[in-house]
Amino acid sequence: MRINIDCECVLLAEALRLFCKDFSCARAECDFIISDRRIKASKPVFIISKDSPHISLPFTKDALFESLQDFYSAIQVPMATIKPKETKDDLESAINELCDKFKADLIAILRQVR
């Protein structure tokens, strides 16, 4: 588990750095980001705030690590089940195939109505 800390609250950021010093790394290398606000990021964001779905303030070190482990496990499941990316051509051909089928079905229905 590699994390990056991006908090506006300096006190919270320093506490997290102390608690998570073994897991802290640069944003480009992290598995997810810990923040005290919603941020736009290409990585999953673990939010710590009063009304957070992940963990709310105040929290203990044990509660933090339990929540972080749960969050990390949850983001690992989708990564493990992702199939190799379909190429753009495969996706376009699948969409075209569905559109052609829909068009044919629609024409058949319209002909029955007449």
Rank of each mutant, 00 (worst) to 15 (best):
I5H: 01
D6K: 05
C7V: 07
C7M: 05
C9Q: 05
C9D: 15
L12Q: 00
E14I: 03
A15Q: 06
L16T: 01
L18I: 05
C20V: 00
K21F: 09
D22P: 10
D22K: 13
S24R: 12
C25M: 03
A26V: 11
F32P: 03
S35C: 04
S35P: 00
S35Q: 00
R37D: 02
R37P: 04
R38P: 01
K40D: 14
K40F: 11
A41H: 01
A41R: 00
S42E: 12
S42K: 11
K43S: 14
P44M: 08
P44F: 06
I48K: 01
D51S: 13
D51E: 14
S52N: 01
S52T: 03
S52Q: 02
S52L: 00
H54T: 00
S56E: 13
L57I: 11
P58G: 03
F59E: 03
T60Y: 08
K61V: 00
K61T: 00
K61Q: 05
D62C: 04
L64E: 13
L64G: 09
L64Q: 11
L64I: 10
F65A: 04
F65W: 04
E66R: 09
S67L: 00
L68T: 05
F71N: 02
Y72R: 08
Y72Q: 13
Y72E: 15
S73E: 15
A74Q: 09
I75Q: 11
V77H: 12
V77C: 07
V77I: 15
P78W: 05
M79S: 07
T81F: 11
T81Y: 09
K83S: 15
K85G: 12
K85T: 15
K85N: 15
E86I: 09
E86P: 05
T87M: 04
D90S: 15
L91N: 10
S93Q: 15
A94T: 07
A94W: 05
A94V: 05
I95V: 15
I95E: 12
I95M: 10
C99V: 14
D100L: 14
K101M: 05
K101V: 02
F102P: 00
D105T: 05
I107Y: 11
A108Y: 04
A108Q: 09
R111P: 02
Q112P: 01
Q112V: 04
Q112M: 08
V113P: 03
R114Y: 11
